[in-house]
Nucleic acid binder design. Structure first.
Lengths: 189, 189
DNA sequence: GTACCTGCCAAACGTTTGTTATGTACGACG
DNA sequence: CGTCGTACATAACAAACGTTTGGCAGGTAC
């Protein structure tokens, strides 16, 4: 329901109908709609964090790539989840508390990315001239923007292109790294 | 009103009150609310396109940088406009027609960026190993994601940091370009 | 003058919203 | 067995919603 109609259609009665219950049940557990909305977003975030991920046994740049791939709407299910998430930005920006929740979530996500960025820098896979946090922020920003683009123009941004865009982006950063890069045809001096 | 309360609060009565008119005026000019919403977004997009821009007499990579800077929420006014725009993604994703409108707008924006990307590639300021459209898409994605991050965490993403993130990103692409790069302290062989 | 059209307002329409109040089934506890 | 608190359903509430309607100005046409 959220996927197709957005958060504007999130009413107490719609939620109650979806779970074959009454509005009385909802009001029994939640003081008001804002509280319901808040825990709904909380559950959504929790579900996103706990969903099965590509647990590649990698580290550094490869791990960063894996983490970013987990975010992109490469499958219909991920697209649906991302769509709900993007839709939530409207209500979240209109409510300071919800906005703070979202800000915290994105900050923590950035910190998780920063771990991989730092490892990649240590391995010489990413430049150390740019701060770890800045690289992580850039990575998250790139992924977020790609999500939005892909949601509005799925035909122009199929899974392969999203992956290619990400890989090109990572390869460019890597080419600026101090470590021994190994491009397919390097002009070693 | 849209800035503070989001699109969920966009009612006929609210719009009418904002312009000191009656709901009858609105229904006189628009068949229904969707039509009102549609032209509202249209006007918003038009206003964004026609607003005064940094008309730097530049070309190539510098022009790309200027165009992206015009998108980022570097000023309170730009932040407000970007906030409305992000909020509109909820209603837009819930309505195929509005979604198509948005998709078209972003595609045209990408095409405008692609002009600068192509010029930069010709000048040797950007690598030609990645397609022009892909570079333009990456640039737009990066800017979009940075907008979202800055809206939710304005304290963590002040104007200077947004600019730095953008410049670092552009510098990395440029360093992968075939043309004669001129870094401040190059290790010329 | 009068008939007519357009632009707009004020009010009301029926529906849907979030919230509240009332009723009831049921296990726990004395 | 009673009574009491919990867990809901049902119904009602006022407010707000998008939309419809009737009517009043004021210009035009004849």
């Amino acid at each position: 329901m959220l996927v197709t109609r957005g958060f504007g259609a999130l009413t107490l009665r719609a939620v109650a109908a979806e779970m074959d219950a009454s509005t009385g049940l909802l009001t029994h557990y939640f003081p008001n709609k804002r509280a319901l909305l808040r825990t709904a977003l909380e559950i959504l975030a929790q579900r996103s964090e706990e969903r099965p991920r590509r647990t590649a046994p990698t580290e550094g740049l490869a791990a960063l790539r894996t983490a970013l791939l987990d975010v992109l709407p490469l499958t219909p299910e991920s697209a649906a989840a991302n769509r709900i998430w993007v839709s939530s930005w409207d209500v979240a920006l209109a409510d300071p508390e919800l906005a703070a929740d979202h800000a915290g979530r994105y900050r923590r996500s950035r910190e998780r990315l920063a771990v991989h960025v730092a490892a990649a820098q240590r391995r010489g896979e990413l430049p150390t001239t740019t701060a770890t946090e800045d690289l992580a922020a850039a990575a998250q920003g790139f992924a977020l923007g790609l999500v939005v683009q892909a949601l509005f123009a799925p035909a122009e941004f199929p899974a392969e292109r999203q992956i290619k865009l990400l890989d090109d982006w990572l390869a460019t950063w890597r080419s600026a790294a101090p470590g021994p890069a190994n491009p397919p045809a390097a002009d070693s001096g």
